[in-house]
């Protein structure tokens, strides 16, 4: 069972459908106690809302999330769900989970913000999550901030939008993508399938 954390910021229908489509068994978890009891094989933090609101609503899930991550359960953070894994963001005073060291900063001046549309990946490492993904494949992005990991080695793929930024970050059982795989057609589904297969 894949726990999809519902932190009350929007509709989770497309991520739920996409995970089911690739063979996963997604269950939307809206209650932090349910996450502790769920015995999840994998966890997804979907991407909805802004950093501050997301952290406030995610706070009750922190214990459950840390338990799962510490026990090696695969975690996938999508978009804002990626950004909350970092220590802090320029978007808000709220602290992130700090599971990955580094900051979330605003996209540079001179580009349209938010980045909204399809952009291509440049792969840095050959990970299981990126099996079947090629350099130059396009994914759908919607964001105004991006992650800057302290340790560059956790960056598995980048994308260029006014700045060469981390698009995929992986550290042990923690995986995070800045784009929306559930909205990125066949290649996005492939990434979700690769993730489901880890669980």
């Amino acid at each position: 069972m894949i726990a999809v954390i519902d932190y009350g910021m929007g509709n989770l229908r497309s991520i739920h459908n996409a995970l089911a489509k690739v063979g996963g068994n997604p269950v939307i978890i809206s209650d932090s106690n349910a996450l502790l009891d769920a015995d999840a094989d994998a966890v997804v933090i979907p991407g909805v809302g802004a950093f501050g609101d997301a952290m406030r609503n995610l706070a009750p899930f922190a214990d459950g999330l840390f338990d799962l991550v510490n026990s090696g359960t695969p975690l996938l953070g999508i978009c804002i769900g990626m950004q909350v894994l970092f220590e802090r963001s320029e978007e808000s005073d709220a602290a992130g989970f700090g599971l990955i060291r580094g900051d979330v900063v605003r996209l540079p001046d001179g580009v349209k913000i938010p980045q909204m549309g399809w952009n291509e990946l440049t792969l840095r490492s050959d990970t299981d999550l990126l099996a079947g993904i090629d350099d130059g494949d396009f994914f759908y992005f919607v964001h105004s901030y991006y992650c800057v990991p302290e340790d560059e080695r956790v960056i598995a793929a980048t994308t260029d939008y006014g700045v060469d930024m981390a698009a995929v970050v992986e550290m042990d059982n923690i995986h995070a993508v800045q784009f929306h795989p559930e909205k990125s057609s066949r290649k996005g589904l492939r990434i979700l399938k690769n993730f489901v297969e880890k669980s």
Partner: peptide
Amino acid sequence: MMTTKRII
């Protein structure tokens, strides 16, 4: 590289 031109 900017985001791609979209066909809708």
